[in-house]
Design a protein around this nucleic acid. Structure first.
Lengths: 235, 235
DNA sequence: ACCTGAACACCGTTCAAGT
DNA sequence: ACCTGAACACCGTTCAAGT
C-alpha cells in the first residue's frame, strides 16, 4: 500500500522534448498557432515557461521541432504508399494526397512549414523518396529536379490558397456582395455566377480537394509529356 | 524672409495614411518584416507609436494596407501588359512575370500577402483582369475557375519555395555536406551531383527564375491542352 | 483634428537560485 | 539533472491629456 503512488495527485510526468513538442502541436490544433507561446505551452504542461528551455533551445527551435514532427507524420504515412516503377504517376499522386490528409488536420502547419528553412531530416527523407520515385521511373536528372521545383509545396499536400474560404461568408452572402460590385469586377462576377455546381459539393463553390487535384494533375500530366518528349526521338 | 520656413529644422511633414504605409514598406525592405513594429515605424517617421493609430486602425490594418500597396504596384505594372485574345498564353505569361519582378524587390511580401485574407480591392482587380483574359480567349467558365486555382499564388508571381536558398550556404559547401549523408539521402545526392550546370547561371544550382518559368509553363501548357480538348470534339 | 506620455497586459529570454 | 521566480527588454494597445 505504501509503495503505491498516492492516488490523489497526478503521477507528475517529467517534461521531455517529446512531451513539449506534442503539447505544442495539440495547443496549435486547439487554439491556433498564434496561441502557441512559451507561457501558454508551459501552462498546458502544468509547468513554467522557463522549464521549457531545458528541453528546447528557444522558441525558434521549438517551432522547428513542431514542423519536423508534422513532416515526420507525413513521411510515415506516405512511405506506405508504393507501386511499380512504371506507375510513377499514380504512386506519386497517392503519396501527395496522403500527405495532404495529414496537413488538413493541422491547418496551421503549411504556413509554419513554409516559414522554416526546411532542411530537417524528415523533409529530406520525404523529398529523397519522391526523387527516387521519379528517377526509377526513368526521369532524367534535370527533369526530376525541375519536377520537384514545379511541385513545390504541392508535393507536401498543400498549396497556400489565395482566398481562405474557411473564414469566408457563405455562398449566398458572397453572391450578394458581389452583385453590388459587379461593375467593378465584371469578370469575377461572370465567373462566380456561371460556375457549375456539383450537387455533392454544394458546401461552397470552391471545393478545395477538387481544385487541389486539378492542379496536381495538370503538373503530373505536364511532367509525363515532357518525359516522353525526350524519349520519343530515339524511338 | 520671415515668411519662409526656418531652414534649420525639417519642414515637419504631417503624418498621413499614405506616409505611414510607404514608410512601412521601406522599413520592411531595409530590415525585414519582423522589424516592422509600431514603435520602430514611428521612430522612422520621427514620431510616436501612438500617433500611428490616428491613421491606421491597428497593426493588422497596417499590414493589410501594406499588402494592398504592393498589390497596387502589381496591378499597375501588369495592366500595361496587353495582347490579342488569341495570344492569351504569352500575355498571361508576361503579366505573371511582370508581377514577379515586383515581388522580387520585396522578399517579405509573398508571406505577408499569403497570410492576409486577400479580398482587397487591388487583388480583386488583378484577378478580375486575369479572368477576363481567359474568358476572352474562349476558356469555359469552369476551366477559367480551375485555372485560377491551379495558378494560385503563381499568378502573382511567386511560389513559396520549399528551400530558401537565399540563406543557404554556397554550392560547394552543400555538395560537401551532402557527401557526408549521401547514404541517408541517396537520391538527393544523385540528383545534386547530376544536375546540368548552365555556364551562365553558375551562381547556384537552382536558378529560381528558370524553375519558376518551368512550373508556370507546365501549368499554361496544361490549361491550353484542356481548353482544346473541350473544343476539338465539335471540330 | 492631430499628436503624445504614462500605463497595462503580454511576449521571449537571462540569470541566479532552488531541489 | 531538472525546474523555478524575479527581472529585463520589447511588443500592441487603451486612455486621458495635450496642442
Amino acid at each position: 500500500m505504501k509503495a503505491q503512488p498516492e492516488t490523489k495527485e497526478e503521477p507528475r510526468v517529467p517534461l521531455s522534448r517529446e512531451r513539449v513538442l506534442h503539447a505544442a502541436v495539440a495547443l496549435a490544433d486547439e487554439a491556433g498557432i498564434e496561441s502557441l507561446t512559451m507561457r501558454r505551452l508551459a501552462d498546458k504542461l502544468v509547468s513554467e515557461a522557463m522549464s521549457l528551455y531545458y528541453h528546447v533551445e528557444n522558441k525558434e527551435a521549438l517551432l522547428d521541432g513542431v514542423a519536423d514532427l508534422i513532416l515526420g507524420e507525413i513521411i510515415h504515412v506516405t512511405s506506405k504508399v508504393e507501386g511499380p516503377a512504371d506507375q510513377w504517376k499514380t504512386t506519386l499522386r497517392s503519396k501527395v494526397l496522403a500527405a495532404r490528409e495529414i496537413l488538413l488536420r493541422h491547418p496551421w502547419a503549411p504556413q509554419l512549414i513554409q516559414s522554416r528553412t526546411n532542411m530537417s531530416p524528415s523533409s529530406m527523407r520525404y523529398f529523397d523518396s519522391l526523387i527516387g520515385l521519379l528517377l526509377d521511373a526513368g526521369f532524367s536528372i534535370d527533369l526530376t529536379h525541375h519536377a520537384m521545383h514545379a511541385l513545390g509545396s504541392r508535393a507536401l499536400g498543400f498549396t497556400q490558397e489565395m482566398y481562405d474560404d474557411s473564414t469566408a461568408p457563405d455562398e449566398e452572402t458572397i453572391a450578394m456582395l458581389l452583385e453590388q460590385v459587379a461593375d467593378e469586377y465584371p469578370h469575377i462576377a461572370t465567373m462566380v455566377k456561371g460556375i457549375t455546381h456539383d450537387a455533392e459539393t454544394t458546401l461552397g463553390w470552391c471545393d478545395d480537394q477538387i481544385e487541389f487535384e486539378f492542379g496536381l494533375d495538370l503538373i503530373l500530366d505536364g511532367l509525363e509529356r515532357r518525359r516522353e518528349k525526350k524519349r520519343s526521338p530515339g524511338r
